[in-house]
Computed example of a mutant assay.
Amino acid sequence: MTDDGKIVLVTGASSGNGEATARLLAASGHHVVLGARRTDRLRALVKEIHDAGGTAQEHALDVTDAAAVRSFVDAAVAEHGGIDVLVNNAGVMPLSKLEAGRVHEWDRMIDVNVRGVRHGIAAALPVMRRQGHGQFVNVASIGAHEVSPTAAVYCATKYAVWAISEGLRQEVGAGIRVTVISPGVTESELAESIADPVGREEMRTYRAHAIPASAVAGAIAFAIDRPATVDVNEIVVRPTAQV
């Protein structure tokens, strides 16, 4: 880790945007603390980062469990004396039309996409208040700005991430930065997890053009690496071909 390296916590780090972000930040000299449920993937990722000369740690983490998120943050504070950035990245996307009535999937989406972010803020904000500095990077979606068929509930969760982030920004004042990253169509495993056949087909069409997760990681790294006096509040990053 370089002298300018930060302690950066990343949730949902076992794949997709979280994994790409971990790799890029570690390669840039930051120490990454990675949380996800799939600990086998985390261990492999941490080894790869170490082998490449970076520093990283892994923790089993389910963001729907508020106590687990507090433990994730507290462990980093105990190990490093504080934290600089929390990237609230964990998310799920089981798309379906409202008429499909897949309530259990919608509940899961709310638990991960909204409560997960709330749990991260609740755990890390007191630490950042004591330090007098810190940054939240909350990963929303282009779905925070537009709604499409099969995505009503998903878009609602991502609009909630945007709204919570903006409220947080207004509340914290100087010293603590708040950034929302809103990716468009991105290569990830999320589409493969869609069980509803209509939602799955809609997403296949929508994903005709997709940017790599590294593009989202680059946006996150840009926001983190700005001077402390600069607060990048939102970045929308999507394929050039996406209408």
Rank of each mutant, 00 (worst) to 15 (best):
M1Y: 10
K6V: 05
A13W: 00
G16A: 11
G18K: 00
G18F: 00
A20Q: 02
R23L: 11
V32M: 06
V32T: 06
V32Q: 02
L34T: 00
D40Q: 00
L42P: 00
V46P: 00
E48H: 05
I49A: 03
H50C: 12
A52K: 10
E58N: 10
A66L: 10
R70F: 09
R70K: 15
S71E: 14
S71H: 12
D74W: 06
A78E: 15
G82S: 15
I83K: 02
D84T: 06
D84P: 05
N88K: 06
N88P: 04
N89L: 06
A90N: 00
M93A: 15
S96G: 11
L98Y: 09
A100V: 04
G101V: 07
G101K: 11
R102E: 13
D107H: 13
R108F: 12
M109S: 14
D111E: 15
D111A: 15
V112Q: 03
N113F: 06
G120T: 02
A122F: 07
A123E: 02
A124I: 04
A124Q: 05
L125G: 05
R129D: 10
R129I: 12
Q131S: 14
G134I: 02
V137G: 05
V139N: 05
V139Y: 01
I142E: 10
A144G: 07
P149S: 13
P149Q: 11
C155S: 15
A156T: 09
A156E: 05
A156H: 04
T157C: 08
T157H: 03
A160I: 04
V161H: 01
W162G: 06
E166H: 11
G167A: 14
G173K: 07
G175R: 06
V180S: 06
S182K: 02
V185E: 13
V185N: 14
S188A: 11
E192Q: 14
A195T: 10
A195W: 03
G199H: 02
T205V: 12
R207C: 12
I211D: 03
I211V: 10
S214G: 08
I220S: 04
A223L: 09
D225P: 02
P227R: 13
V230N: 10
D231M: 08
D231L: 09
D231N: 15
V232F: 07
E234W: 03
I235R: 04
V237K: 04
R238S: 12
R238V: 04
P239I: 06
T240I: 14
A241Y: 07
V243W: 11
